[in-house]
Simulated scan of single mutants.
Amino acid sequence: MKILVINGSPKREKSDTMHITHAFLEGMNAAAENDVRVIHAVDQHIEYCTGCFSCMRNGGECVHRDDMRGILEEILNSDLLIWSYPLYCYGMPAPLKALLDRTLPLSSMAMHKVGDRYEHVGQRDFTHLRYVMICGCGFPNSTHNFEPAISQFKLCFPNNHTIITVPESPMFNAPEAVAVTEPRLKKIKEAGRQFAESYTISDDVMQAITSPMIPEDQYAAIVNGTIR
């Protein structure tokens, strides 16, 4: 399988969330060999979308001459897109949002009704793609935190998507937390293996990897105790 990881964290490989993503990929690779490429959005030259819509009228030709042309081709040539990013203001970091905005050339101005909503008709065929969202946040639970990002992802990629959200993710970069992060990463590897084999993750594994690693009040006290 050809996998494109789009990392939205400005911290690149030092991202808390990338620990989760690498474990997921390790699990996938244990089930089958994959061709994996990682793009750090912050390192790409991506101009902001101006909303001129010329790309939606002229066969996908954007007015900007930047890295998005190559990225779009990489997306279309992949089998799986993994969107890996930390939660910023209940959404994705700005470099990744700029990249997502610039996928507009894949769609045309024409629209059609799908179920109870309208969608743009594609200019390119990307029906083969599957999508995984891996998102971590620094809060001790998921309640009223991930919902906006999840809603956006489901609307952007209504088909063939899998969503993994992990609270307390800064613990993955804390060596003193290895006693709790190591078992969690093993569960995430298991999720990757299951996904590689069936494109699904069992409910018990999903519950295990998306729940807090330590009690919420304990995590909050630790974080608050490190503030200078």
Results as ranks from 00 to 15, higher is better:
1 M>T: 10
1 M>I: 05
2 K>P: 06
4 L>P: 03
5 V>Y: 09
9 S>V: 03
11 K>S: 15
12 R>H: 11
14 K>I: 00
14 K>W: 01
15 S>M: 02
15 S>Q: 00
16 D>G: 04
16 D>F: 12
18 M>T: 08
19 H>P: 03
20 I>S: 05
21 T>A: 15
25 L>E: 10
28 M>S: 12
30 A>F: 10
32 A>P: 08
33 E>N: 13
41 A>T: 09
41 A>D: 03
43 D>K: 10
48 Y>F: 07
51 G>Q: 09
52 C>P: 04
52 C>E: 09
52 C>F: 05
53 F>W: 09
56 M>C: 08
59 G>C: 05
60 G>A: 05
65 R>H: 14
65 R>E: 10
68 M>D: 05
70 G>C: 08
70 G>N: 11
71 I>G: 05
76 L>R: 06
79 D>G: 12
88 Y>W: 15
91 G>I: 06
93 P>W: 12
96 L>A: 14
99 L>D: 02
102 R>L: 09
107 S>C: 14
109 M>R: 01
112 H>R: 13
112 H>F: 10
114 V>H: 11
115 G>H: 05
116 D>W: 03
116 D>H: 06
117 R>W: 04
117 R>V: 08
118 Y>R: 10
120 H>D: 02
120 H>I: 00
120 H>F: 02
121 V>D: 00
122 G>D: 03
123 Q>M: 03
125 D>N: 15
127 T>Q: 14
128 H>W: 01
128 H>R: 05
128 H>P: 00
130 R>L: 02
131 Y>P: 01
132 V>G: 03
134 I>G: 02
135 C>D: 07
135 C>M: 15
137 C>Q: 14
139 F>N: 15
139 F>M: 13
141 N>S: 10
141 N>Q: 02
142 S>K: 11
145 N>S: 04
146 F>Q: 08
146 F>G: 07
147 E>L: 12
154 K>P: 00
156 C>A: 07
156 C>P: 00
158 P>S: 10
159 N>V: 08
161 H>M: 07
163 I>S: 08
164 I>Q: 14
167 P>M: 12
168 E>P: 05
168 E>Q: 15
170 P>A: 08
174 A>K: 13
174 A>S: 15
175 P>V: 03
177 A>R: 06
178 V>L: 11
178 V>G: 07
178 V>S: 14
184 R>N: 14
184 R>F: 10
187 K>V: 04
188 I>K: 07
188 I>F: 04
188 I>M: 14
193 R>W: 13
195 F>C: 03
195 F>H: 11
196 A>Q: 07
196 A>S: 15
197 E>H: 01
198 S>V: 05
198 S>Q: 10
201 I>H: 06
201 I>W: 04
203 D>F: 00
205 V>E: 09
206 M>I: 04
209 I>Y: 02
209 I>D: 01
209 I>Q: 01
215 P>F: 05
217 D>N: 14
219 Y>L: 01
219 Y>M: 03
222 I>M: 15
222 I>D: 14
223 V>G: 02
224 N>I: 02
